[in-house]
Design a protein around this nucleic acid. Structure first.
Length: 504
RNA sequence: GCCGCAUUCGUCUAGAGGCCCAGGACACCGCCCUCUCAAGGCGGAGAUCACCGGUUCGAAUCCGGUAUGCGGUACCA
């Protein structure tokens, strides 16, 4: 652990207008990594000013999702539901409106901002005119220099003003932590911009500046889609007399087609990945490598190892497409590294879900699952895959496609012959020694005696007892199935194969 | 349209003037292992480092331009 550095303070400030987004999680992760690597403070602030779209369910989803990933904050809402934790509480914007109001009043008093009485109709007309003239859209400044008398007149007419920030001419620049020097001429900012709506509620860009300053944020690390907000925020910081933090703009996570990742084209909810059986270790590892790499040839790293190696200088500048194949591979890597007992615990909800929707008839005991670990753990790309892999073990009525039971090189008659002989050999086996290395030799002998290929017989037995052509090793599977069900399933398969033959 | 940013195998990336006619990983293909499927091992294919000029003895790496892509352009966040 590095020595604590109280001067480094970073934050994630999601707005609860939707469930935890993979992009939010990635931004949170990078802030977290940055803070933990240098021993700084990582805080969480809820940007809940969009009343119409914010919900408490989303808040919970975001907080829980981040914690699930192992991303924890030093200051912010209490994940357990208690009061906000930290010296700068509250950590939700709606609860901080007094300070926003004070800042707005200060800007107004300094004439750094002014009331704007323009109506939406006027604004839209301006925009249309600019479009027609092939001019970039910008506020024309109609209310920028109103006299006190003019303002009073507007008020008297019932005009309710929004508050606009006065954009000064010049160039605003900063040394971005990931993309070096960026300079933007304020003439391209679209004119004076609104910071407080006519209804009195403040806008994101303004609130963020006030809250970040109040919480003494030293480094603002966020998505590239915010670079155009940065000059506006710097301008407001200057007007308010606050120090300007360092900025770092992360490359975007992209859809497979290269556009900014969206719900429309990709799966974006962290909880959906979780529900599909991705584990936190895999997801975090994958997310960290989207736009960053340690510069070594390591690719499977734990959160702690990533913290150790994290360096914002090594963050990529270009966007990164989300590659689910790679995520699955990493997830499998991490599933294989889990302690068996841990894996069993994590598998349980997926087995319960499968039982609830009828894919399996019952949830196996921990002992049953534990005995399967040696053959199952290395075969799981996701936790949810357990059901496809060995769900047949917990199904009462196994449905077997007769066509599948007959191996490629065999015909139905040979298959019946083979299964019957195998059934006899297995039925003769002492149920007490029903173990993989006990079951195999007699069947090998049978194969040799009849001149068959082991693979053919084994495949017939496999499909007859599991309904599938791909399973864990056959004899381990039969052991898990137990003598009784093995014989019963063999009988059932033989019966379905003989019926049509008898008719023919 | 305007402003900004980006551009190394299909994808994620290594690379900070000679170590690179470019390394790793995923995906793909083949072989080995093998009762199937995985896992694992080995090997293969895959990038004229977007393009064009320049600087230099030497450029993926520095400079300029072009192209393409993306982001932003709200009384959204």
């Amino acid at each position: 652990m590095p020595l604590a550095d109280p001067t480094i303070r970073v934050r994630i400030a999601p707005s609860p207008t939707g469930p935890l987004h993979i992009g939010t999680a990635r931004t949170a992760l990078f802030n977290f990594l940055f803070a933990r690597h240098v021993g700084g403070t990582f805080l969480f602030r809820l940007e809940d000013t969009d009343l119409a779209r914010s919900t408490t369910e989303n808040e919970r989803d975001i907080i829980e999702g981040l914690h699930w990933l192992g991303i924890t904050w030093d200051e912010g809402p209490d994940a357990a539901g208690g009061d906000d934790i930290g010296p700068y509480a509250p950590y939700r914007q709606m609860a901080r409106s007094a300070s926003h109001k004070a800042a707005a009043d200060r800007l107004l008093a300094d004439d750094a901002a002014y009331p704007c009485y323009c109506t939406t109709d006027e604004l839209e007309a301006d925009k249309r005119a600019q479009e027609a003239a092939h001019q970039p859209p910008r506020y024309v400044g109609r209310c920028a220099n109103l006299t006190a008398a003019e303002r009073a007149a507007r008020e008297a007419e019932g005009g309710v003003p929004a508050l606009r920030f006065r954009v000064r001419p010049g160039v605003v620049g900063w040394n971005d932590m990931v993309r070096d020097r960026i300079e933007i001429d304020t003439a391209n900012l679209g004119g004076d911009f609104v910071i407080v709506r006519a209804d009195g509620t403040p806008l994101y860009n303004f609130v963020v500046v006030v809250d970040d300053a109040a919480m003494e944020i030293s480094h603002v690390i966020r998505g590239e889609d915010h670079v155009s907000n940065t000059p506006k925020q710097i301008l407001m910081l200057e007007a308010l007399g606050y120090p300007v933090p360092e900025y770092g703009h992360l490359p975007l996570i992209l859809n497979p087609d290269g556009t900014k990742m969206s719900k429309r084209k990709s799966q974006t909810a962290v909880d959906d990945y979780r529900g599909q059986g991705f584990i936190r270790e895999g997801l975090v590892n994958y997310l960290a490598y989207l736009g960053w790499s340690p510069g070594t040839e390591e690719d499977v790293l734990s959160l702690d190892e990533i913290i150790e190696r994290f360096d914002i200088d090594k963050v990529q500048k270009g966007g990164a497409r989300f590659d689910r194949d790679r995520l699955e591979w990493l997830n499998g890597q991490w599933i294989r590294q889990l302690q068996p007992e841990d894996l069993i615990d994590r598998l349980r909800p997926f087995l319960e879900a499968a039982r609830d929707d009828g894919r399996i008839s019952r949830v196996p005991s921990d002992d049953e699952v534990r005995s399967l670990m040696p053959v199952v753990q290395e075969r799981l790309p996701t936790l949810a895959a357990i059901v496809d892999l060995v769900g047949f073990l917990w199904v009462d009525e196994l449905v077997v496609d007769p066509a599948l039971v007959v191996p490629k090189r065999w015909d139905a008659a040979t298959t019946v012959d083979g299964l019957t002989a195998a059934r006899a050999a297995l039925a003769a086996h002492d149920p007490v020694t029903w173990e993989a290395d006990e079951l195999e030799p007699p069947l090998r002998e049978l194969v040799a005696a009849r001149g068959w290929k082991a693979g053919d017989l084994f495949m017939a037995i496999r499909v007859a007892t599991t309904g599938r052509t791909a399973t864990p090793p056959l004899f381990d599977t039969l052991v898990a199935l137990g003598p009784e069900r093995t014989i019963r399933r063999l009988d059932a398969a033989i019966a379905t194969l003989t019926a049509p033959i008898a008719r023919a």
